[in-house]
Design a protein around this nucleic acid. Sequence first.
DNA 1: TATTGACCTATTGTCGGACAATAAGTCAAT
DNA 2: ATTGACTTATTGTCCGACAATAGGTCAATA
Lengths: 246, 246
Amino acid sequence: MPKNINFDKIAHQPAYRVVSEKIRNAILSGEIKTGELLPTETDLAEQFGVTRSTIREAIRLLEHGGILGRADRKRLVVTKPQTDAIGRSVSSALLMHQVTYEELWQVAMGLEPLASKLACTTATKQDKQLLAANLVLTREVMNDHDALLAAEIEFHDLLAKATHNSALLLARAPLNELFYPVAWGEIIRALSPGERILVAHEHIYAAICDNNPDKAEEWMKKHMVDFRRGIEMGNLGFDQPVPVTP
Amino acid sequence: MPKNINFDKIAHQPAYRVVSEKIRNAILSGEIKTGELLPTETDLAEQFGVTRSTIREAIRLLEHGGILGRADRKRLVVTKPQTDAIGRSVSSALLMHQVTYEELWQVAMGLEPLASKLACTTATKQDKQLLAANLVLTREVMNDHDALLAAEIEFHDLLAKATHNSALLLARAPLNELFYPVAWGEIIRALSPGERILVAHEHIYAAICDNNPDKAEEWMKKHMVDFRRGIEMGNLGFDQPVPVTP
DNA sequence: TATTGACCTATTGTCGGACAATAAGTCAAT
DNA sequence: ATTGACTTATTGTCCGACAATAGGTCAATA
């Protein structure tokens, strides 16, 4: 038996990780501000005392998280990660966990009514205008499946944006990315529920304009329950994993 | 004025992106299964017809999302992204958006009561045992601020895991990562609310064992409202951005 | 004046080769 | 069954090179 001495596992990080962390910290701590250009690769290589290849690997590591983007396709720039950028990572993760419609719906049930409620007090005039425009659009494309799907997704997205809550936006990113496109897509093709969708959206919109959080929340709940029924009636099993569709 | 002909912006992707996408698709489509080793860098370079450097950059791109990890610190292996891996990306994003306590609390209000409710029907014996053990631990470390904080965070984490809903786990990752550590940390140091925390946790646990979703949800809501009051009473403003603490 | 063109420069994307460090495997010795 | 010595495969890092191109400057042109 070994003595009961325990050494900590020593943490030998490869250089590209170390560099990546340092850059990440510099960005998060505000040392390099959003919108600023990152030094050129050659500069960085010199500063950190490593080769350009190493720097490049470090940069790639950050690029995926959306912290770094490119201004004009050449120089790298520090960016606020947009929800869709981060959403892709999350979606990949969920797909690999074989997330089911049921699971996503449960999250939607937690977040979407909340978004409706919050939007009542936070929505600006512009937010409301965008929502109104979306309603008009929805009515127009009622019979075009693809366009209707896009409009439906946009409505929920606009609503979430109207909360001006970035945490909420990020938390519901997978809904935009995975859930609605696939699930609503199926439902719309199978049941043509355009009218029902529009009615729900209109009530939610009205509630927001009336500054009536309870009503907004309530209608969104109804809308989501309706949605669930749609899935159940369609051929797609509610407890099935969401299929991979690139 | 230019003629109203519009060409699509041509999408010239650098090779490392293309390669990264191809590997990503191969993984998501199940062509390479979870747990399998990725071919060696030299192999990949040959297969794709690019240099090893390019392959490496492509790999780094995926590594950040947690799709790739390493089995034994050498060969790369395909992994299911764990919540903490993805959580770090999301947290970075939120920090850069200067997310406030208020925003995170709102999300918590949407997700945590939901988790409590769901856990009632999904928690296994083992889940309950873990929760019970956590309660014992909490009682023991009641006066040790750091340990209490850790136990409190663990309780919520265990609860979320008991739902066996990966979408929910991922959505609430930033709470674990950002919100609780910082906010609870402050509250615990300032108010020593150990007793109140324990009582709430015990009620939630009891509700789960009784299979009483409404009660579980209700107590979690109370718990979160309590939490909010704690923040408001402490010196940290509720509408302040969460500080960057690496 | 505003667009075009020619030119130069800085920076990224990609290549190829090189070598050290180190997991992993093999086989013999204890 | 563990240790040790040896070999091999693979990653981490370095160096140097070059093509492609975005950006800037400045003159020529309509």
